[in-house]
Design a binder for these strands. Structure first.
Lengths: 159, 159
DNA sequence: CGATTTACGGATATAAATATCTTTTTAATA
DNA sequence: TATTAAAAAGATATTTATATCCGTAAATCG
């Protein structure tokens, strides 16, 4: 049971945009700054754009900006944009016998999913930027050329 | 964000064993009863056996039985046996710069993982069997030949 | 003891998630 | 208006998770 790469990437990108709101950022500049695969990120940004979380401006001087107020944007919304939290609404065994009634196992598992939804919903992107922390968001990375850890070759790809 | 098949299968098997404790059950009989791929289940049962959650008896008249008291067995233990809940203990970006200190994003994500652990830990296998419910555990399936929904061809495989 | 049944360990195959690449569309600017 | 930059769309490749298969070990029974 693990946080998927897709969710991790999407959140990194959104936090980055929230923390650097003064200008728009291209897909590849975000990828470089936050150390993730550029072409995969571009796919993720499309989903975020569809969901209205980021705004993508095409063409020269284009790029992505955050389309929402970080203080009103929950982690749950970001997660749902790329990999929706799947509630259990009907028996996974596919038995029609009892309609919408779940047995205790699946009722319990759905309760766990509800808890997961709540845990995600409880945090906003804004709150993560505001909390004091010795460690800067995204582990001290900054915009390319300004203060980035230039000679770190790690990709950030897990597993 | 979804409950994996592996976790779903493991829990179905454990609940089945807890609900039918009077005799041992072969891997394939459990698979048939709870509608899941037999050979994959046998792999999952191996993990559960390693974790001491089920006991596997070889040979004629052998099979699996629950090795633990269902009332003291949490869902978390079953989940951890097959697909451990992965806490975030170091920066996924792999930066050594700040040791064990997580930035707010990863601190928050790890908090979510803690909530997931708690949600799993809060339920025991026994409690699911005891709760009154119009729908029987595992959606009314019973031991082969007794009362199973014999003409249902659904496999229970999602996605 | 030999045959049968079953778990166990590990190799192989298949499907799905992850990642990359190619082409098209849109916008800016020279 | 031509050129360039970048998102958007979607096809393709790679990797990982899911599922199957096969040989071995242990237990039972005749």
């Amino acid at each position: 049971m693990q946080m998927s790469n897709t969710v991790e990437y999407a959140l990194r990108a959104v936090v980055w945009l929230a923390d650097n709101p003064e200008e728009s950022h291209t897909s590849s500049s975000i990828a470089e700054a936050t150390r993730m695969p550029s072409s995969y990120l571009s796919k993720i940004l499309k989903s975020l754009s569809h969901a209205g979380i980021v705004y993508g401006q095409r063409g020269v001087k284009g790029g992505y900006t955050l389309a929402r107020d970080p203080n009103g944007l929950s982690i749950l919304e970001v997660v749902n944009a790329v990999e929706p939290v799947q509630r259990i609404r009907a028996c996974p065994l596919g038995l029609e016998a009892h309609g919408k009634n779940l047995c205790n196992l699946h009722r319990t598992l759905d309760d766990v999913m509800i808890e997961i939804e709540k845990a995600f919903a409880n945090h906003t992107i804004g709150s993560m930027l505001k909390k004091p922390n010795r460690v800067k968001p995204l582990c001290g990375l900054t915009v390319k050329g300004k203060n980035a850890l230039a000679d770190d070759r790690s990709t950030g790809i897990r597993r």
